[in-house]
Design a protein around this nucleic acid. Structure first.
Lengths: 143, 143
DNA sequence: GTAATCGTAACTGTTGCGATTACCAATCAG
DNA sequence: CTGATTGGTAATCGCAACAGTTACGATTAC
């Protein structure tokens, strides 16, 4: 896989919604406004917000005055949920298949893969200790 | 950045060297043999072994009978050192620059970047608890 | 109805990567 | 010394993934 910017965009969007107190349909923020705050393209934002909506972190509504708003309090949204919502992982690579026929050569990739999974879980656990609300705190408590 | 396979290749190469007890110049393993065990291309292996040599984890020698061998015991090579040797990171993306002029919009990317660094460090700390020797153990103790 | 907005598809240009080829330097065998 | 083997590195190719953009249908407020 490649260097996707989905996670940073998602985290930024959620933090922006929290900052604007967008917690109900009448305070929805449009993809254009979110995009302007990054800055990036509204379509890029909508691609991410659609995934966040599917994960149940936000809701969106089409039409005039539509946009996105938070479905849960910012302090209850861990960044690990954000990472999962955008299908992110730590991307340390995929183990090579290993030479067929060599009993040791076939076992090494399994061990390497397990190490990558362990590192991935450790990163997710660390992100679970940071919430969207933490992204707005002025002093770097948990960061 | 993209989904680089350098880390899995490096870990596999080190584990293979450990399995072959390649710990001195006279037991050097050629890039061709390492490549055959993945399988991949010898040049890809040499690109990685050159980085591992620069990091002091292995030594290499050119010429007939040359190749690579471990410079340190497998149990003393943590996978975090391997990751650093190949300049790896968790690749969660780079925070967007943020809209200039907005005090909050400019602070969010900093916080997001700090969260990414925290996740990166957590993954490295987890990898530090796994050594090349662990990759060869038959039972999944630390994996 | 009109305007605004989301969701999604299609397309483009760029970037990064693995693989391959090629060449030079280094090393050993004879 | 000569030749064969091997690592290091550069150049190149083809592929895949991504951000950005345009476009269009569907939905909603006024």
């Amino acid at each position: 896989m490649s260097d996707s910017q989905k996670f940073p965009v998602a985290a930024h969007a959620l933090a922006y919604l929290a900052h604007k107190n967008a917690t109900s349909p009448e305070h929805a923020i449009s993809s254009a406004e979110l995009a302007a705050s990054m800055p990036t393209n509204p379509v890029v934002v909508r691609r991410v917000t659609a995934m966040l909506a599917r994960a149940g972190l936000i809701d969106t509504r089409a039409g005039a005055g539509g946009g996105a708003w938070l479905k849960r309090p910012p302090g209850e949204i861990g960044l690990d949920q954000v990472l999962r919502a955008v299908h992110g992982c730590t991307h340390l690579g995929v183990p090579p298949p290993g030479a067929a026929g060599c009993p040791v050569g076939e076992r090494i990739p399994v061990a390497v893969g397990a190490a990558i999974v362990a590192a991935d879980q450790a990163a997710a656990a660390r992100l679970a200790g940071i919430t969207v609300a933490d992204l707005l705190s002025t002093d770097p408590e948990k960061l």
